[in-house]
């Protein structure tokens, strides 16, 4: 464990808590993409299959349980409890255009052609594009609530911090995982446009409103 990875995990944790607070306080899921949350649930389920077979640390297990638990709770809030406020018309990204290529790529490019490893690789590739339905929804509605912007900033920062973690681990431990790094770079790049808007607008107290 290193400070970059710890900050990354905390940023990820903060993003999930911000999202839950937004939903619970406003009792609304307006502006939130249920499809992205379903993709994140798929990512966590696929990545944490080893939750019961390999024990890394208490921290690792607790975080995995928390991430899986909260993402399914988020889906429950979107599609059941606050279903009336879910904006399905604007949440229209075709996720099959993500899942099929990512699934194919996981078969072709992986560290080891073994079931658990291919599923792990699938979760890494899927995570890098899982935010697209959410970003697409914001571009369609033309705006994002400030709290949703904070959620996205924390979520984007988490993988950016993981990139720092991988640089650190390369020099400190000689650890290098090309698949995770490449997917992490793609994932972070997808947020750059949003980071720019966040820093130039939200940090000055303005709302993010894209030219619709």
């Amino acid at each position: 464990m290193n400070i970059f990875r710890l900050c990354g995990d905390m940023s990820h944790l903060a993003a999930i808590i911000i999202l839950l607070l937004k939903m619970w306080k406003t009792r609304s899921v307006a502006g939130i993409s249920g499809k992205s949350q379903i993709l994140f649930a798929t990512v966590f389920t696929a990545r944490y299959l080893d939750l019961f077979t390999s024990f890394i640390s208490i921290y690792n297990t607790c975080m995995k349980v928390f991430f899986i638990g909260t993402v399914y709770f988020t889906i429950y809030l979107i599609y059941m409890k606050f279903k009336a406020t879910y904006d399905s018309n604007h949440d229209s990204f075709r996720v099959e255009f993500l899942i099929v290529p990512v699934g194919g790529l996981a078969f072709l490019v992986n560290h080891e052609f073994a079931p658990l490893e291919i599923i792990w690789t699938f979760s890494i590739y899927l995570e890098s594009v899982a935010i697209l339905p959410q970003l697409f929804m914001i571009s369609k509605t033309g705006e994002a609530e400030t709290i949703t912007s904070h959620y996205l900033f924390a979520l984007g920062s988490y993988r950016a911090l993981y990139l720092c973690n991988w640089i650190y681990r390369y020099y400190a431990e000689g650890f290098f995982d090309l698949i995770a790094v490449v997917a992490g770079v793609v994932q972070t790049i997808l947020y750059c446009d949003f980071f720019y808007l966040y820093i130039t607008k939200v940090m000055k107290g303005k709302k993010i409103s894209l030219p619709a």
């Binding site: 990875r5 990820h12 080893d50 890394i56 690792n60 975080m63 995995k64 792990w120 973690n165 995982d177």
Partner: peptide, 10 residues
């Protein structure tokens, strides 16, 4: 590249 058995990151 060094690949550990399994993955220790979240």
């Amino acid at each position: 590249p060094v690949i550990e058995e399994g993955h220790d990151e979240l």
